[in-house]
Structures are given as structure tokens and as C-alpha cells.
């Protein structure tokens, strides 16, 4: 893969390093960084804390004291971790696309939940039912989790229904609300303030803190929304 040679690597303080493969959203790049994170998690180094994958970047968190202590070299922890990551990149010969589960998420688009469906329709000069038809026709990829526990950033939306965030965020968005922000879609796992355009609501519990796996969705999952009455 060409892009794997084309990256920017920088520190996020003295305990984290980010390797950034490009400032754009692509399923292939996202697959690549997810695979790289798996490799690093399976080849932990002394002082390793955790990996976080975003759209097209991977951040490795570490304890620079532990890294330095275990290395009797004159290298900085940053240099040590950087070369560890670069060695792992060399191991990836091509982006293997692992079998993905497709998760169906039932959503109610009832007026009382779809707070901004009118706005999304008007902004894009469409009928509401056309918005829903386009929205439901695609399978979305979970690119990353962030913002709130279990909040999945999914994409990409059809250009015809992409809508910018609200200028003034709502102070309270109900749990389970399905929103649109630009070409992204996402679901609020908890009640929270937020600026996404709300088009529906699901009853699926996206964040179950006491389960072994507290989040319903994970990076790399494929999602299909289904309309419920």
C-alpha cells in the first residue's frame, strides 16, 4: 500500500506518539491503522499503555519513564517507540480486509425523535422520506470511537444528505439519538450536549459499562440502519 510510506509522525506530549497517514477519511486507510494497532497490541513493548485509532491515524500511549528505564541506550523514549511502530509497519505487506460483521440497528424516525429531520431535508432540498431512503440505503463503517464512551463515528453519508452541525449545540440530546454531522453519522450512547442534526432514535444500548465489552460498536464494524414503526 502506497500510503503506508507516506506518513507524518509526531509526539503528543512525552507519553504519546501519533502516526498520521493523511488528513482524509478513507475505509482503506482506516483498515490499515486498525491492523497496525492490532499488531502493536500483540507486540507490546515495556512501558506500552494503549493504542487509539482515529480515522487515518494511530496514537500509541506509553510511559516514557518505563520505556527509558528498560532501554539502556541513549535513545529517547520517543525514538524507541517510533522505531518500534515503524518496524511493525514494515510487517504489513498488504491491507488484509478481515471479515466484518454487519450490525443492524433499528431506528425510529418518528417526529418526536427526529428533531432535525425537517432541517436536513430543507437544507438538501429533499422530501423527508427521500432523506430517509438515502440514509437507509447505505452500509456505514465505524471509523472510530470518541467524544463519549461508545460514541461511534460512522460514514460516509451520501453527499445528497450531508448536513453541517448545528451552529449552537443543544444542551441535551436524548440517549440513543441518531445524528448527522457533515458526511458522518453517529449515535449518542448517553444523554449529552451536542451539535449533530438529530434524525431518529434507537433503543439499542450502545454503552453497557458493566459488560465485559462495554461498547456495542467497535472500530471496523459495518452498520445498517433499519426503520422501525
Amino acid at each position: 500500500m502506497e500510503s503506508k510510506k507516506n506518513y507524518k509522525i509526531y509526539s503528543v506530549g512525552e507519553n504519546a506518539i501519533t502516526i498520521d497517514f493523511g488528513n482524509f477519511i478513507s475505509p482503506e486507510l482506516n483498515e490499515f491503522v486498525t491492523n497496525l494497532a492490532d499488531l502493536i497490541e500483540n507486540n507490546k513493548f515495556e512501558g506500552f499503555i494503549e493504542c487509539l485509532t482515529a480515522y487515518s491515524s494511530l496514537t500509541v500511549f506509553y510511559d516514557s519513564y518505563q520505556v527509558r528505564k528498560s532501554e539502556e541506550k541513549l535513545l529517547t523514549a520517543f525514538e524507541t517507540v517510533k522505531s518500534h511502530i515503524e518496524n511493525q509497519i514494515e510487517k504489513i505487506t498488504d491491507t488484509k480486509s478481515t471479515e466484518k460483521r454487519i450490525i443492524e440497528i433499528p431506528v425510529s424516525f418518528d417526529e418526536k425523535f427526529a428533531l432535525d429531520l425537517d432541517f436536513v431535508a430543507k437544507t438538501n432540498k429533499l422530501e423527508k422520506k427521500e432523506v430517509l431512503k438515502i440514509f437507509l440505503s447505505k452500509t456505514y463503517r465505524v471509523f472510530m470511537l470518541g467524544f463519549l464512551p461508545g460514541f461511534a463515528y460512522m460514514g460516509e453519508l451520501d453527499e445528497r444528505i450531508a448536513t453541517p452541525r448545528k451552529k449552537t449545540p443543544r444542551t441535551k440530546i436524548p440517549k440513543g439519538s441518531v445524528g448527522i454531522a457533515g458526511k458522518q453519522t453517529g449515535i449518542y450512547p448517553l444523554e449529552s450536549p451536542g451539535g449533530w442534526q438529530i434524525v431518529g432514535k434507537t433503543d439499542i444500548e450502545l454503552f453497557t459499562p458493566n459488560d465485559n465489552s462495554p461498547t456495542y460498536l467497535n472500530a471496523g464494524d459495518l452498520i445498517k440502519f433499519k426503520k422501525v414503526k
Binding site: 506530549g13 488528513n23 482515529a54
Partner: peptide, 12 residues
């Protein structure tokens, strides 16, 4: 610059 989201940390 329009940036897509990436990791931040305590102190960023």
C-alpha cells in the same frame, strides 16, 4: 486548517 479528529491527551 480543517483537521479530521485524532487523539488528544491531558495537557494538549
Amino acid at each position: 486548517k480543517e483537521l479530521i479528529s485524532s487523539a488528544v491527551d491531558f495537557g494538549t
